[in-house]
Design a binder for these strands. Structure first.
Lengths: 242, 242
DNA sequence: TTCTTTCGCTACTGGTCGTAGCGTATCTGC
DNA sequence: GCAGATACGCTACGACCAGTAGCGAAAGAA
């Protein structure tokens, strides 16, 4: 039932490291009062163990409900019913609806990868295409922006979102960059900090643009569009004289 | 109390025209069953007229509540109380919380403009700076993503958002492009459709990147960052050899 | 077997959205 | 000044949902 070997509940002290360090927001020292693990407190293995099947059923039901009802329409009771589980079981594992949805969506983003396709242009195009594909799923479409919105007011949730959704995407950019450098397409990094900033910009440009295109402008991401976008990114501004 | 001469309630048949025409989504013919005007049905001027002061007070209270409580914390009852108005009065003008917030936020975006500063680079930097400034306001930060999220499930709301928030921004791109062409920095438009597509890409890149940077990555938009971003946009990919 | 933890169930609290109905205030047209 | 029309404030209400409490039963570990 679970082809992907999901790690059930480790991270006794998550190595996250996350973003550059200090963001613009206060951020209570990060991981301040966050004893809840990735999925829940999970006992030390004494009594009856948690049902892994229930975990999976709940996450699947959450994605299904998201696709059917959207973020606003999704209710914990409904998810529990779809999963064939009591509502209380949901709350034993996830502290709130938002956190549940984070985990349900995050697993989709695990599928992102950045294979080396021989050129930077090809690599970027492939990532954009894959990313756009994810963002056209009704469940991600319904959830992603709502999660970001919720996160803007809840540091704990924001940390989870960054950790589980944002950072994995950012890694792709670093990966693609390293590949391009290995191929001799790009200068090797001179300065660690400068490289990080560079990666940050590229990441915001790619992720932000695709998200805006699909979720705000509401227009499709076609192969032609991807090519135009990537070309704009790599080359000079189109139509610019001199 | 109201320095800006807001048009109270006209648009008997809004000339919107909106986006390129056909988006990727079904969209029930647009403006199908939408007899509600910009603010409400508004009578023909027979009985007691609506209080314009109340309109303004409600919108101000909405922004204030957004800044204080965020999207999730905002309640209609609270807004009414802040505005010194009955809750029913809110519902006489706006059909739902989302639509109210759209109008409250939209007025902020009216302040965007694209002055001709002599070069495309300078124009873009100015727009980005102004846009980023708007997105750092607590009220926009709390509302924008939540609105987009809600809109993904509600065509009526999505139309309003596009009309009141997205399109006004897009116009800036068209404006800046026209200025650059007038200055001889860019080729004049050859093909109307191609130009529209070009504008669409640029718009998604600029708006999407800034939004992602501020609201998702959660990092600040500094003058230095703006310069780097604009340079990336106008010139070749940084670090790219050959 | 005994101990520990999870699970399902039912019931409950607290809060929100959005509406209905009423009496009152304010404006237009006569 | 008067009747008609409309907006307003108020109170109350129905429906729904998040999240919690407490129970007996189930399922593993020691």
């Amino acid at each position: 039932m679970a082809p992907t070997p999901r790690q059930p509940a480790e991270h006794p002290d998550p190595p996250v490291a996350t973003t550059t360090a200090a963001a613009t927001v206060p951020e209570p020292t990060a991981a301040a009062a966050a004893p809840v693990g990735p999925v829940g407190p999970v006992g030390r293995g004494k009594g009856r163990p948690r049902s892994a099947a229930a975990d999976q059923a709940i996450l699947d039901a959450t994605r299904e409900a998201l696709a059917d009802l959207g973020w606003g329409g999704l209710t914990m009771g409904d998810v529990a019913q779809r999963a064939g589980v009591a509502k209380t079981t949901l709350y034993r594992r996830w502290p709130s609806k938002s956190e549940l949805v984070v985990d349900a969506i995050a697993s989709l983003f695990d599928q992102l990868e950045c294979a080396d396709r021989g050129s930077l242009q090809a690599d970027i195009e492939a990532v954009v295409a894959r990313f756009a594909e994810l963002l056209t799923l009704p469940e991600t479409q319904a959830a992603l922006l709502a999660l970001f919105a919720e996160g803007s007011r809840d540091p704990q949730l924001r940390r989870r979102i960054r950790e589980r959704i944002v950072e994995p995407q950012k890694v792709l950019v670093e990966f693609g960059r390293a590949n391009a450098q290995a191929r001799g397409e790009m200068d090797p990094d001179r300065d660690r900090a400068a490289a990080d900033e560079e990666v940050g910009i590229i990441f915001d440009v790619i992720a932000g643009t695709v998200e805006h295109r699909l979720l705000v402008s509401g227009e499709p991401v076609t192969a032609d569009w991807i090519r135009r976008f990537t070309t704009l990114l790599l080359g000079p501004f189109p139509g610019l004289l001199r």
